[in-house]
Simulated assay, not measured.
Amino acid sequence: MPEYQATVTYDELIYEIGSYHYNWHPDIELLWLLTGEVEANVEGEVIPLAPNDLLLINPNCGHATFAKVANSVMLRIHIRPDALDINGLNHASGKFQLNTAAEHVNPLYEPIRSSLANLTYHDNQLSQTAAYFDLLNLLSKFYITDESYGTTLATPKHQKAISKLTEYLEQHFSEDISLSMLAKQVNYSSTYLSKLLKSQLGITYSEYVMRCRLQQAIRELTRSTDNISSIAYQVGFHDLKVFNQSFKKHFGMTPTAYRKQLTPSLVKSDNQFKQALSSNNEQLSEKIVKSHLQVENNNSPCRTCEFREYQQKYTSLMNDLQSVVKHN
């Protein structure tokens, strides 16, 4: 029987959502909207989130969130994808599909919230570890195999090269940088570098440069009063039409439409982005999260048992439906 070290590694944050902060990273990102109304944008797909909604964003997917109302507070957790390998998953050949806005009913949603609550407000290291592995186990239920999707973990040598390249691109994205110029930075051939970037980052070289430019464009559209054509040129677009098309492809709206959505309250939230919550928001968020804490009582069935029973019924029903579809 294989042995696994009980390593608990994650990054959690509760913060107020403002305007788009476009980003991507190699971790699994799980969002839980606590208060307000938020629009999530994942790879150009707009997903409206209401209080208590959960959304899992796969590694290296470009994404951003936008508050539709003031005081929209989110709990966000990052987990390394290889952490789920303990459940026998091959994180490099599949993806997760967890979106309560799309699939409203699933008996596993509340156990996920309970695990997040117990992870956030754990009593000791043992309860923290238990909540962490409970969460991993639950998330694994939403994993589907997809050979066309996924990335591989970099070797130390490749990781050093990738880090050097991404750092270079993030400093020079507004310039005209060809793949061959980039390859010279690490003494690789253009063909080899192209394959390496795709396997490690999950996106092509040109898409990475595009994301860097759009990331800066979002910042400038939010913070500055410069006109759109000037911003496009500053971030590396020499054709306004291409900038508008790229922006709409990634965010589902034009730069002009995005700017029209910005309100003073959003700008205020941006100035305090990922900083300490206001006293009211902090108290309300704590109350909401703690209301999902899993509390076991000797005089009543535990919530885990109840949810396990619901899960079994749900699985049985889905198997019956699949059997009917298969025979028709």
Rank of each mutant, 00 (worst) to 15 (best):
A102Y: 14
E103K: 15
Y192A: 15
D176T: 14
L126Y: 01
I231H: 00
K198C: 00
R259V: 06
P26N: 08
P156I: 13
L136W: 01
N297K: 08
Y192Q: 11
K326H: 11
Y132P: 07
Y20T: 06
R113G: 00
Q245L: 06
L55F: 09
R80D: 14
N281A: 12
S279F: 01
S224G: 05
A161V: 11
V242K: 13
D226S: 13
A183P: 00
Q125G: 08
Y15T: 01
S194K: 08
R113E: 01
E207M: 12
G94E: 05
Q5I: 10
Y4F: 15
V105L: 14
S316A: 10
N137H: 01
Y310I: 01
N299Q: 15
Q234K: 10
N58D: 09
T9Y: 12
N319M: 14
Y10W: 07
T166F: 10
C305H: 12
K326Y: 09
E207F: 03
E45M: 03
L153M: 05
Y22N: 01
A70L: 09
N227K: 01
Y208I: 03
Y10H: 14
N71G: 07
V242D: 12
L221H: 07
E207H: 09
L201G: 06
F243N: 00
K198H: 04
G44L: 02
L240D: 13
F173D: 04
L30V: 00
V209P: 04
H78N: 05
H21G: 13
E103V: 15
